[in-house]
Nucleic acid binder design. Structure first.
Length: 825
RNA sequence: GCCGAAGUGGCGGAAUUGGCAGACGCAGUGGACUCAAAAUCCACCGCUGGCGACAGCGUGCCGGUUCAAGUCCGGCCUUCGGCACCA
């Protein structure tokens, strides 16, 4: 018998599969489909362990579903636009395209060395003109639907990356990619109107039972829906109305000031002829110069300046002074907030600092509030209204509704829903992305590039210099064009699109990757999509997963797809750690997949990574654990090849009834394993326990060695074992399959083993004896033992007699086929 | 502050519906094979006490429900993650 040599076996089968195009799939409406998808990678150049984990999980599922008879699509591609390619150009003088494609080549080689069942014919690369042509086409679709627009706004700017960022790409005030602090800039930029879909993006989360709760919660928080009242104060001095937004309309009688954002549009009028203009302007300037982190921290001191101008509260006619403050956000609500110090903690702090009056309007039921004793605002949504005119005595929630009704009836206010979600800023001042297909004409204004002229290709003759702004803007050949409408001299838009646009629809392109007439055909996309199981890291919980949901809804509204959600089931895998922390170059704790695969083979790497922890939990890499996985595969190899001759000579069917008790016991383990592995993969996503139960089966198989075993049973065991292990360790199982069952094709196309329910039947059971809930003994009884028989058998045990002696039996509880608990006093 | 997840041997983890806590693997200990080693195969392996049979304790902490709780309920603690001046 030869040794298990993974390097030889794996190369051999990878080549065979590639030559046979073993994993090609075509749409076939007569068969049930399964779309398994792992998040496609950015081509950084090398796979890391997170990729290995991601792909291993997806591959198990894809192979298992294939064996269950599904028409499985399992594609791979590259999210290949983005900053690193441009940085490489700046630092090393390589062209972004060359850098990217050579990285892709290397990563494909590494992916192929893992033995993944990808249909490479479906591969997409987002930086390829055949792909970004359709990304541009989709931009135009959004534009035509009124969902893409350009506006001047205060936007997030990252100096290091030399570009603007979307809100979702600012993490704790820092750039998601380079971790440098972001600051605000007033720029004219392109946006996608994701806010039009805020409500549906929130509501439809309910339609995703197959998504982890925490991801849905994160999206909920991000969308941030609130219901409230928008109503207007009169400013007689300026002849203006000032709208404010509040979720606590019940506190409207407690307003003692109005807080304005430092960017509020009314400031211009306020400053005019104002004796305090200089002071106010200085304050606004100071606030605007603060960083985002300072400005949005709830810790920072609340500050402001009084304007000397008063607004009139429409509810009670009382005057409230306008203050310009540092704690009101210009972008949320109306940029102006009614100040109610008694019931809002920020307003409280502000009023205390500047000696603004405070009026209590809500009285808790269980105690009495006294202004002079209060140290903070009363923010509980509980109590009865006071000092609120005709609403006095009303319960808080009742009053909230009544006060909003009043505003609507009298016409100075309206109920409104507000979202935290902002429109998606999609333009980037960078080169390596899909150009925005717009031409600016002095006569016609914004003009879309005609469809027949797509794609707008990236020019190659550009220069990359450190700190240079937008290489495209400097490329004269690119910039100057004729207007498609009137033929006048015009200029191209020189911004490119956020790479998250490219990745918002790639899973749809996989269904029809070579289509040059449209992004994808309706028939194909509706056969394959939505994705049945999506697998990726939790870091995309908001960014990619929210954007993709948005895209799908827009395409649904356009009639291009029949479904409204792109990913039916989502699995967020845990991170791969080493010594308790994330693998990183700076910590020097990186384990290279290539090395591990070179040393032990891909089957071992895959098996270990799936066995060591549940897929959704963080996994601590262990070199010794890898050895264990390798040893296990060796055990499988040896025992099956020791039985090689017997298996080949054995009949395909045999008489199960004539097996000995020992053989039947073993066969029960075999079928229990089939049942468990099937359920663990199909229903529970518990690959670690699936692997451990296969290990138990192998241990039981070893225990049978040297004992009589019917040839038919050995064959049945070998066949099931190889199949059960096939999704996890595809190469060794393919090799064993061909050696033991030559002429039956690939194990990966074989039918998944079926459980023989009759094999699971037992003729004896072990019954546990408990005294007062403590286990004292066990007894083996016939499987059909009834309650009475169980109790009698248990009572007869010496242990039972010993513990009952001298005591009174209060109660006897009998759980059929399991245990008898005797309660004594 | 709000929301979410987790806490089990020396370690990774298992226990799916309230019914034998610690499956499987790693590490460790002992043995077989070997001139020897590696590899392999077999056995033991929560803590405390006891030569032992055995007894007691044990799933973050405190309390509760139950014949029976890792699992259910109430109250905490710790860790991780998300959101956070959103009016």
């Amino acid at each position: 018998m030869d040794r298990y040599e993974p390097q030889e076996i794996e190369k051999k089968w990878q080549k065979a599969w590639e030559e046979a195009e073993a994993y090609r799939t075509e749409a076939d409406p007569s068969r049930p489909k399964f779309y398994a998808l792992e998040m496609f990678p950015y081509p950084s150049g090398n796979l890391h362990m997170g990729h290995v984990r991601n792909y291993s999980i997806g591959d198990v599922l894809a192979r298992y579903k294939t064996m269950e008879g599904f028409n499985v699509m399992h594609p791979m591609g590259f999210d290949s636009f983005g900053m690193p390619a441009e940085n490489a150009a700046i630092q090393h003088g390589v062209r972004p395209g060359d850098w990217t494609y050579s990285n892709i080549e290397n990563m494909e080689r590494q992916q192929k060395s893992m033995g993944l069942s990808y249909d490479w014919e479906r591969e997409v690369k987002t930086c390829d003109p055949s792909y970004y042509k359709w990304t541009q086409w989709l931009f135009e679709l959004f534009y035509k639907r009124g969902l893409a627009y350009k506006k001047k706004a205060s936007v997030n700017w990252c100096d290091t990356c030399g570009t603007v960022l979307a809100n979702e790409q600012v993490i704790d005030g820092k750039c998601w990619r380079c971790d440098h602090e972001v600051h605000k800039k007033d720029l004219s930029q392109w946006f996608f109107k994701i806010t039009d879909y805020a409500d549906r993006l929130l509501k439809d989360l309910e339609k995703l039972p197959g998504w982890p709760e925490r991801v849905k919660t994160m999206q909920e928080n991000w969308i941030g829906r609130s219901e409230g009242l928008e109503f207007s104060f009169d400013i007689p001095e300026l002849g203006e109305k000032l709208p404010v937004y509040t979720t606590r309309a019940d506190t409207a009688f407690g307003v003692t000031f109005i807080a304005l954002a430092a960017e509020h549009p009314l400031l211009e009028k306020i400053l005019k002829d104002n004796p305090k203009a200089a002071e106010i302007e200085a304050f606004c300037k100071k606030v605007r110069n603060q960083s985002e982190i300072e400005r949005t921290s709830s810790e920072s001191e609340k500050e402001g300046v009084a304007t000397g101008i008063y607004a009139v509260n429409p509810f009670n006619g009382k005057k409230a002074e306008l203050w310009v403050t540092n704690y009101v956000l210009a972008e949320y609500g109306t940029g102006a907030v009614m100040g109610v110090p008694s019931e809002d903690s920020r307003d409280w702090m502000f009023a205390k600092k500047y000696d603004i009056p405070i009026i209590i309007t809500l009285a808790p039921k269980d105690r009495e509030l006294k202004l002079e004793e209060m140290t903070e605002a009363y923010t509980d949504k509980d109590g009865v209204l006071v000092n609120s005119g005709k609403f006095d005595g009303m319960e808080m929630h009742e009053a909230l509704a009544a006060i909003m009704d009043e505003a609507e009836e009298k016409g100075f206010g309206k109920r409104r829903v507000n979202y935290r979600l902002r429109d998606w800023l999609i333009s980037r001042q960078r080169y390596w992305g899909a150009p925005i297909p717009v031409i600016n004409c002095p006569h016609c204004g914004e003009v879309l590039v005609p469809e027949e002229d797509l794609p707008v290709r990236l020019p190659e003759n550009v220069s990359f210099e450190q700190g240079a702004v937008s290489p495209l803007a400097q490329c004269e050949d690119f910039v100057h064009v004729k207007c498609p409408k009137c033929g006048a001299d015009a200029t191209r838009e020189t911004d490119t699109m956020d790479t998250f646009i490219c990745s918002s629809w790639y899973y749809l392109r996989y269904t029809d990757p070579k289509n040059d007439k449209e992004p994808f055909s309706k028939d194909k996309v509706n056969y394959w999509a939505p994705v049945d199981q999506y697998i990726g890291g939790i870091e995309h919980a908001i960014l990619h997963l929210l954007y993709s949901r948005f895209f799908t809804k827009v395409l649904h509204d356009e009639g291009m797809v029949d479904f409204e959600e792109p990913f039916t089931n989502l699995m967020t895998q845990g991170m791969v750690l080493k010594d308790g922390s994330k693998m990183s170059k700076s910590k020097g704790n990186v384990v290279s997949p290539e090395e591990i695969i070179g040393k032990y083979g891909a089957d071992t790497a895959r098996l270990f990574i799936l066995f060591a922890a549940p897929v959704d939990r963080d996994l601590d890499w262990s070199d010794q654990g890898v050895e264990g996985a390798y040893r296990f595969l060796g055990r499988v190899w040896r025992i099956l090849l020791r039985y090689e001759d017997a298996i080949k000579a054995a009949p395909a069917t045999y008489d199960v009834a004539s097996l000995s008790k020992e053989e039947k016991d073993f066969r029960r383990v075999l079928h229990q394993t089939i049942k468990k592995v099937t359920e663990d993969i199909r229903d529970r996503f518990m690959f670690n326990t699936a692997v451990s139960s296969i290990m138990e089966l192998v241990n039981a198989f070893y225990a049978m060695e040297g004992k009589d075993m019917a040839a038919g049973l050995v064959r049945e065991t070998a066949e099931a074992l190889v199949k059960l292990l096939a999704p996890f360790a595809p190469h060794i199982t393919e090799e064993l399959w061909h050696r033991l069952f030559a002429g039956t094709g690939s194990v990966h196309q074989a039918k998944w083993p079926q459980v023989d329910e009759s094999a699971l039947e037992v003729d004896t059971i072990e019954v546990v004896l408990q005294i007062n809930g403590k286990v004292r003994d066990r007894v083996t009884l016939p499987a059909n033992a009834d309650r009475k028989a169980m109790e009698e058998a248990v009572m007869a045990l010496p242990k039972a007699k010993q513990h009952i002696e001298g005591k009174e039996v209060v109660k006897v509880i009998c759980v059929p086929k399991k245990l008898v608990n005797i309660v004594v006093k």
